[in-house]
Design a protein around this nucleic acid. Structure first.
Lengths: 233, 233
DNA sequence: ACCACAGTATGGTCAGACCATACCGAATCA
DNA sequence: TGATTCGGTATGGTCTGACCATACTGTGGT
């Protein structure tokens, strides 16, 4: 056999090629959020592939929260670049939890460690706490466990937002999404949420006062209070 | 207009329907890693949709690290359920960094906070440290910056693995993947890596000794040493 | 017992068609 | 002149059917 007659073996699938090309355009042409990609048919012709392959690539980008497709005509139509890591992360966690590739305990521990850091950071930068206060008010007005968890989630996500780190905030939102049902059951099991409410006030005060160490402590104790209900033995 | 003549508006795209159906099967039938999904043509017939829609759904699942497709015939062929959140997370971070929807600083800070927790946890559970020691040895034998970063990454990922939390480990791997080029440049800028190597030994010792607080301190100082090179002012 | 080869089920890709959507613009009317 | 209506059209969404590449499976011959 002649060593030079290597057939051009197809190593990568076509849609992966399309993905790479689109990613190259994004980085090289400096495309950013809000910019539009060419239409599917046009992209297919430009890259010399079928529309199916282009569509599969776009579907991947959409699932990763990078593009958003809109039918119709006009400036908002077509595949627009976005940056919504949160939805992709939520899908990822949900599916892997369903597959038993992850356990709820790992999710909750991760949420725990991220929240401590976020609270400390929010206190350190003296972040705006109006969103936290609003969520607190919502919790006080909650009648059902679902409502309580809803506002509780808003409160804790607001802490992550206040940290100023968008990645941390996105991860926190996704983690809370995954915990949702679980949290509702925990609140039902707990019955009385007054302890949790008091913890929230303490966390808010610590962040408002700009005391990172106290914020970490407050979060740690808050989660310690919630743990028994989350993991009944 | 008669309020009752609502056409059955199509709210969800077909492939999203397929996604939901597959996810339902996973949870209801208790499918888990290693199990096979029906063939594309078969799935299309079962759900009454076209193969294209099934393929788009499978592409999404593949991009989220939940299935892995293999052509051919036999037990390993077809769409097999897996659980590789790491690759999906890496793609996600890389794309969002390219889109300027995330900044490297946010990635590095996130890595920082996760690593502190992981080190403390590894110390607390007295995890096996052989992987860490191996990575240390690799770093000592490294000649180039690329090699050093390679083993450095292995060391820090080993810490995350040692924490016993797979989600934390997956996030750590993805974060390090995203930082790769950046880290190489930082190491080049730094020149002398002896300080970093000493830090690593200290971290390893703390984990081996089962001292969480010392592990956190050691990681914090290590990252403080690396920060100036990561963010040259 | 081994091996070569045809059969076949799988994913990967393509081409072409049709539908639903939503904007654009010209024709129409007040 | 201004507002309104309606057809044109570019877009994504879906379907069909075909063909290729791959890799196992079973059969038949040695």
């Amino acid at each position: 056999m002649d060593g030079t007659d290597w057939r051009p073996i197809k190593r990568t699938r076509t849609f992966e090629d399309v993905l790479a090309q689109i990613e190259r355009r994004i980085t090289e042409d400096g495309l950013t959020v809000g910019d539009r990609l060419p239409a599917e048919r046009q992209l297919a012709e430009q890259l010399g592939v079928s529309r199916s392959s282009v569509r599969e690539a776009l579907r991947v980008l959409e699932s990763l929260g990078v593009v958003s497709s809109q039918a119709g005509r006009g400036p908002d139509a077509g595949a627009v670049l976005t940056s919504r890591p949160h939805s992709a992360l939520s899908d990822l966690l949900r599916l892997h939890l369903g597959l038993a590739g992850l356990e709820m305990r790992e999710v909750i521990d991760t949420r725990h460690l991220i929240e401590q850091w976020a609270a400390a950071r929010a206190a350190a930068v003296r972040a705006d706490t109006s969103a936290l206060a609003a969520a607190l008010a919502g919790m006080d007005a909650s009648a059902t466990a679902e409502e309580f968890v809803e506002h509780d989630t808003a409160f804790h996500c607001a802490i992550a937002d206040a940290s100023g780190n968008r990645l941390v905030a996105a991860i926190m939102r996704s983690l809370r999404d995954s915990m949702r049902r679980y949290s509702v059951e925990a609140v039902r099991r707990l019955g009385d949420t007054s302890v949790l409410r008091a913890d929230h006030v303490r966390i808010l005060r610590a962040i408002e006062a700009g005391e990172p160490d106290e914020a970490v402590l407050a979060v740690a104790e808050h989660l310690a209070h919630a743990y028994p209900a989350l993991f009944p033995s």
